[in-house]
Nucleic acid binder design. Structure first.
Lengths: 372, 372
DNA sequence: CTGAAAGCGCTAACAA
DNA sequence: TTGTTAGCGCTTTCAG
């Protein structure tokens, strides 16, 4: 019934040459007579041949595929797994990331495989997937600070690139944004607006990103004569933003400016402010930090610090590719500047130029690490 | 350097049996002495063996992988390809779909590979990917009515399931929502609110979904004594909603109720209404149709017809699986009811129960089709 | 119930 | 420059 897909053998026969020769032209290896190349290419066209990935992968140990892994830390129960996936995927953050990755992969005819690694078992599957070269490497997006996956991958020298600097020091390549600089811009924005009683809703403080945004915000305000800043910790969700703002208002009802460590929380903050009869931004100015793109659909328009998420994701893919090809031997990090943008869709002058930094690791530390 | 991953051979040696026997227990084939099974399983545990997918796939012609394909119709230029991908991925619709698919796949330790097929070349790649069983089947999400991909797949009997009924009649399985019923609920909602001068912003009218939503809306209103309904065609984006509402107001400034054929457009509609000094919903009531989940982050809360997107996507995965396993021979369609929900997060009483329908195809039509 | 043997389609030495 | 050959790791007849 189902027509067989043509093999190298078929092409070889059609072209009157050996399999090896066909293989050579398919893989663009020189040392093939140009005339024969033409004949072979013609035969390929006639037969409609395309290489069988499984067969090729079996011998080359290359899948020409990369894994896009969303990983957590815990050991969620079966029932919580779907919820985990749903939560991550529902976040607009995800679409932007995939978009950036796909932008890099597409021209290379590569396709990402989507994996989740929030349990011990799932991590094991990711590991064996990579060990078998079912994927040549992984792009890791952790939702928890203590995610063990990066270390597990690094221990086995499996190619991977992280989104965001990991909490534990692991010799691994990552891409991140300059959180402190972004937070500084947020602080300056509020000050420039004339806010004098500012507060911040932070992300989960065990996350480096959340810490850095808080630190950058605090430092800037301190430098401007505001040594004490009320803070409330949130969980990067809209609901947590709503709650956190409620707590802040309880203690400090006269707040006139708020920096929310991400846009979803900023949304929650705005909702609480409106619900308590305050006007935004007349009474209280709010600025977010752009992980998602909710700022674009928000009324009133949300002021936010723009992260070049797509570019960051594309850069991750590029670094992974270099790692797979062996072009990149040492762990590297690329830090993007987060340019300020007021409101959604505002054209920003400062492009987010990536600043690549060599990550020098003490030999000893690396060694110790390998010893586990 | 890189430790070899253990093979069947290794396990066989450790267990003192042949490769074939190990393979049998790995694949759960009966007719293996229980005692030997234990020995083998122990050896598997000790060696840390996991099957090599490429090798297995080479012989079984099964990849245990499915493709999640976002396909367009046109033949976009190179530069437009990224834009295409970005547009689709930015839409929250996408996250919900992936979430639903992953919900089905995860418990089966399967992972989807993400593909785009908006050009001739990309379609070719998807086809050969499936022909080679690099993926066992495809879940297709078309963004255009004249997408040739479903037909191409059907012609080669490659397993696939579509999201939404295709425009051209193709013997292919699909999952859809009862657009007319949903639109009817939207109409009834507006009438119940007391609206008397209603209008609608439709989707691209070459899409069956957009046609059906329009038809359902019109029919219901006609039945209630409103034979004429102003309409403006949009493109399922926020901007197109803004523009369409502007056109409607130009001709009919006294509109007091609007049905937008999706939420993104509803957002645009609301923005135009507010911008022209109208209050929502006091002056003009707006109801959307939920493709994305923007309704949840919208102020004022958007009233919308809820589509059970995740369940629909999960059902697509299930149908594809059945097709791959050969359990499902004939093309089938599953139509979900779209329950009405007022505002975001409102618990709806009517669950979206899937109504499976056999899709009876005239033998002759099918035959003609196969002849191309 | 178990093992031996023959490939799946491809690449990569190694010869010619 | 080209062909021959030996596998990659697995499943699957076919004997035993």
């Amino acid at each position: 019934m189902t027509r067989q897909t043509p093999t190298l053998e078929d092409v070889a026969r059609a072209a009157g040459v050996s399999r090896a020769t066909v293989s050579r032209v398919v893989n663009g290896i020189r040392n093939v007579d140009p005339a024969i190349q033409d004949v072979v290419r013609e035969a390929i066209r006639n037969t409609g041949y395309t290489p069988n990935r499984a067969a090729r992968s079996l011998v080359t140990k290359r899948a020409e595929t990369i894994a896009l892994v969303v990983s957590g830390a815990g050991d969620e129960s079966e029932s919580e797994q779907n919820a985990f996936a749903a939560r991550v995927l529902a976040d607009p953050f995800f679409g932007r990331v995939v978009s950036g990755v796909v932008g890099f992969l597409r021209p290379r005819s590569m396709y990402p495989v989507l994996m989740f690694a929030e349990t011990e078992k799932a991590r094991g599957e990711v590991l064996s997937y990579l060990r078998h070269s079912s994927a040549d490497g992984a792009l890791i997006f952790s939702t928890h600070a203590e995610d063990p996956l990066p270390t597990l991958l690094a221990e086995e020298d499996l190619p991977c690139v992280l989104f965001a600097r990991p909490l534990v020091s692991t010799p691994v390549t990552y891409v991140d944004v300059a959180h402190r600089d972004g937070a500084r811009l947020a602080a300056e924005h509020l000050l420039a607006r004339g806010c004098r009683r500012v507060a911040t809703v932070t992300g989960p403080l065990n996350l480096p990103a959340a810490q850095d945004r808080l630190a950058g915000f605090r430092d800037t305000l301190a430098r401007h004569g505001h040594p004490y800043i009320p803070i409330a910790e949130g969980g990067f969700t809209t609901e947590s933003g709503t709650a956190a703002m409620g707590r802040l208002l309880m203690e400090h009802p006269d707040i006139d400016g708020v920096f929310a460590a991400n846009d979803l929380m900023a949304l929650g903050v705005v909702q609480t402010l409106l619900a308590t009869g305050r006007r935004v931004p007349e009474d209280v100015a709010v600025i977010g930090f752009d992980d998602s793109n909710v700022a674009a659909v928000c009324r009133p328009p949300l002021t936010t610090i723009r992260q070049p998420m797509e570019e960051m994701a594309a850069t991750m893919a590029r670094l992974l590719q270099e790692q797979i090809e062996g072009t990149l031997s040492e762990p590297t990090s690329v830090i993007f500047q987060a340019p300020a943008a007021l409101g959604p869709g505002v054209r920003h002058v400062v492009r987010g130029a990536g600043v690549r930094q060599r990550h020098r690791l003490a030999h000893r530390a690396l060694h110790d690490h390998r010893q586990r």
